[in-house]
Design a protein around this nucleic acid. Sequence first.
DNA 1: CAACTAATGTCGAGAGTTTGTCAAAGGTGG
DNA 2: CCACCTTTGACAAACTCTCGACATTAGTTG
Lengths: 314, 314
Amino acid sequence: MTSPNDAALLRIGEFSRRIGVSDHTLRAWESRYGLLQPKRSEGGFRLYGPEDERRVRRMVELIDLGLPSSQAARIAIADPNGSGAPGLEAPAGGQLPTSVLTSSQAPADVPTPSVWVRARSQLRQTLEEFEDRGAHQVLDRLLADFALDNVMGEVVLPFLNELEARWEAGQITAAQHHFARNVLRGRLTGLARGWASGSGPRAVLLCPPGEFHDLPVVVFGIILNHGGWRVVFLGADTPIQGIDAGFVPPADLFVLAAVSAEPFERQAKAIADLASRNLVVLAGPGATKELTERTGTILSTDDPVTAAQQVIAR
Amino acid sequence: MTSPNDAALLRIGEFSRRIGVSDHTLRAWESRYGLLQPKRSEGGFRLYGPEDERRVRRMVELIDLGLPSSQAARIAIADPNGSGAPGLEAPAGGQLPTSVLTSSQAPADVPTPSVWVRARSQLRQTLEEFEDRGAHQVLDRLLADFALDNVMGEVVLPFLNELEARWEAGQITAAQHHFARNVLRGRLTGLARGWASGSGPRAVLLCPPGEFHDLPVVVFGIILNHGGWRVVFLGADTPIQGIDAGFVPPADLFVLAAVSAEPFERQAKAIADLASRNLVVLAGPGATKELTERTGTILSTDDPVTAAQQVIAR
DNA sequence: CAACTAATGTCGAGAGTTTGTCAAAGGTGG
DNA sequence: CCACCTTTGACAAACTCTCGACATTAGTTG
């Protein structure tokens, strides 16, 4: 029984040593941001408990992520464990001493672009060094701190684009390119465990034969699932003819994505056939207005995140 | 029956010597924190008993952990028998157990074959109904109860083979086939989070261009990683020429897998080139003795689990 | 581009607190 | 009588407190 009463309390020296943050800094964070409100000994020494430790560790994480200390402090105060609902919504009922905060902090925190930039660069660096663990940590932190849509739209998708660009430009090796894609694929599909099950409307996602860039589709599916849809992900290089057989009741939406037009063109007939019985959306750079008109499908020119948000909003 | 333990009472000198805390200190702890309330002799000498000893030992323990004496006393009084450090976590610098896959799977469980059969059939059923959640549960239970190698060798691999067979025989639709493979791929790569990082020897796993059956390779990698190797997974359809560039130090092992011979044949030259600088293993049904001899590589005819176990055992 | 401002981690001085240890003066017990 | 113990008060080393100053970096403004 470790009630709050017998929680161990440490003075600033030991506390500082354990966490790796200097005592000066701890005091500065306390006075400047109200990050901590340690108990005091009779003589006035600060006494830190487990909750304080969580906050500081969180603060450090957020700073590592590139957030300015002031913002990191606000997040760490509102959500020391990072397990709570992520997102940009301002934590309701913020009652803690926000008075300490300097002015000019108008609305809910929109992370400065540098957070995204920095996260992407950390992803790039770790993955190009074949260090998947570091990449996972970056994603862990992002997902804990920010809304899923933002992480996908501001980090994952741009990173993927950058990755392809660097690959085509010969700036990275095939090994680096494939490694990064596989780490991300694993991580993203892991994010969506159980996404085909449940009770919402059901979308079937696939890339036509010859198309292997399925990662943006995964992102699309994750956002869609997050919005309440069931997502049946069929992945890359999936034949289209008769693909809707076996779905009872019929799926509510089919999404086909390709980065070039050929995969669509080759399957135009099968696509038109599928679209005669189902709602079909063509997405990705390979989808053209002309093609969608010819096949009776719907064109989506947005990025996966935006597109999924639109589907969710109907 | 009044005082069965009078004999156990010690005066401060002996008590002090026995615990290794000076008498001065003991008295200070008593007067300052009320840590002890020893009985007294008629003349006023302190008489300490076993309970006092426990308290003092606990106090010392807590002080060693870095707590201020005042706090240590508070806790030692409240909970003299508590074990370990309450409250704060271990001092920084400590490493968490890095592998999610604890290797402590005892010889305990001797699963009857029907467990495996049953698991496979549950997997088949849930996945063919596009119910990934059920499939995940099946795998959760298996992984919790049985050794990783067994789950892979007795359930995952046979299921994959069965899946391909049913697909080729037209017993399942393309959607079911692709869905199942994608769920499994996500799950398996999720199992191996961080597998490229760490400190063991490093293996690079890939399928040559034109080869897309990368799941058995993932299984191989998981077992290998479980055995202490770092695994750089490059996945399906990976070009071979120059693939070893950028690995410093060089990878300890390259594993190329394909289900038919053509992908190997098409890349025979690149493979031989790779093998001239590295240890290269060809695996899968597409690997032939003739080919390995011609390219200076090593043939593996075993299933992925067995093959990985052999590599681990060297 | 220089100059100013804001944010943030770090230092230092002088005062106060915590805590183990000691000393003095005297009592206890075999 | 001598070794051991008690109480009280006092120290000193290590630690911490507050407050102000400073250095650096980044963004803004003239």
